[in-house]
């Protein structure tokens, strides 16, 4: 019962909505980009419409929503494209964000299931993000809805913190699951760590010819070892959150973990890895989507502090310390970084 009460209390914690709002805007842009590029490349009726209506392959009835609407015909598919784009736009604007997320989620699910050959893990990553945005209160700040409600673009209204934690958990699950399945002798210790070199040679995902990396083979070996170790050890990131959720000031292991702040080394590897992938490989929106989840690694107070530092840097003055605004809010956590 004690563990259950602690779990219930944990999920009752609230914080400002900045991190979730940034996540919402970024995911909304990804929805627009993911569906928009299919429109832009003239592929909507090629990939997602049945062969009988001009598509390149027989698709059957498609997902339950497509089947319910009458099958993968141009009218149904364009309708779903419009619904997805409208959902993405609502998310970016922050207007009826839960409804926007639900529309985008069901639209993207229906479209991507209709032709399972033409997609990848990035579709799962996107729909997982959208489901979290259905559950989250993500438009309390940095949104049109906030502007209409308060007359300002920003608000410090508290929102439940657990959707942000679930986003972090999702990121960890993805890396840990991916890392634990990298069983090739070219990935694991004891092998030659040639995985990244050979992956870069696969024409399917290349942006351009990658034979120029051959003289840099030792660097690709180091990157292979680092990627594998980093993915496998990604669950350690949860310790950073465990440390921050405890009482302040923290002592012992919690205190040490807080000072260590595993989020920094995690992001120091992850962000360049995704940016590098984006630069040399075409794996769809995967890198951009992954980086969206990184926005949830930081507590809203930390985003505000970073924004203050940036503003001060621009003005050439030291940053002003934050006002203790969150401490008195009912149900809020005054501890930054949790």
């Amino acid at each position: 019962m004690k563990a259950w009460r602690a779990w219930v209390a944990l999920l009752d914690r609230r914080e400002e909505g900045t991190s979730l709002a940034l996540f919402r805007v970024a995911i909304g842009l990804c929805v627009l980009g993911t569906v928009g590029t299919v429109v832009g490349h003239g592929l909507v009726e090629v990939l997602w419409v049945d062969r009988a209506h001009g598509g390149y392959r027989s698709l059957g009835e498609g997902s339950w929503l497509v089947a319910l609407a009458g099958g993968p015909t141009p009218a149904v598919i364009w309708g779903l494209v419009a619904v997805s784009l409208a959902g993405g736009a609502l998310l970016v604007a922050g207007l009826a964000a839960r409804l926007g997320a639900l529309l985008a989620l069901q639209g993207v699910l229906a479209l991507t299931w209709v032709n399972g050959h033409a997609g990848g893990s990035y579709d799962d990553l996107l729909t997982n993000a959208l489901w979290l945005l259905v559950l989250a209160s993500s438009d309390r700040t940095l949104s049109l809805s906030c502007r209409l409600r308060t007359g300002r673009w920003r608000s410090d209204d508290p929102v439940p913190a657990w959707p942000r934690w679930l986003a972090v958990l999702q990121l960890v699950l993805m890396y840990a699951s991916s890392g634990s399945q990298k069983l090739s002798s070219t990935w694991v210790p004891g092998g030659d760590f040639s995985a990244l070199y050979y992956i870069l040679q696969q024409p399917t995902w290349q942006r351009f010819d990658m034979r120029w990396v051959a003289p840099l083979f030792p660097l690709t070996q180091a990157a292979t070892a680092l990627t594998w170790a980093w993915e496998i050890s990604s669950p350690l990131l949860l310790l950073a959150f465990w440390a921050r959720l405890g009482p302040s000031p923290a002592t012992g292991l919690r205190g040490w973990l807080r000072r260590l702040d595993l989020r920094r080394p995690f992001a120091l590897v992850g962000v360049p890895m995704h940016l590098g992938t984006l630069l040399v490989m075409n794996v769809g929106p995967f890198s951009a989507l992954s980086l969206c989840f990184y926005l949830c690694l930081w507590h809203p107070d930390e985003w505000h502090a970073a924004a203050r530092r940036l503003r001060a840097l621009r003005r050439g003055r030291p940053a002003t310390p934050p006002a203790p605004a969150t401490a008195s809010r009912p149900g809020s956590t005054a501890r930054p970084g949790a």
């Binding site: 993207v108 489901w131 069983l183 040639s194 024409p203």
Partner: peptide, 22 residues
């Protein structure tokens, strides 16, 4: 998984394709 889009399929680059096709 199907209704909420929460499928977890993370078999990404589990092994490099040493004989890729173009």
């Amino acid at each position: 998984y199907r209704g909420a889009g929460t499928n977890q399929s993370w078999r990404m680059f589990v092994a490099p394709h040493r004989f890729p096709a173009r």
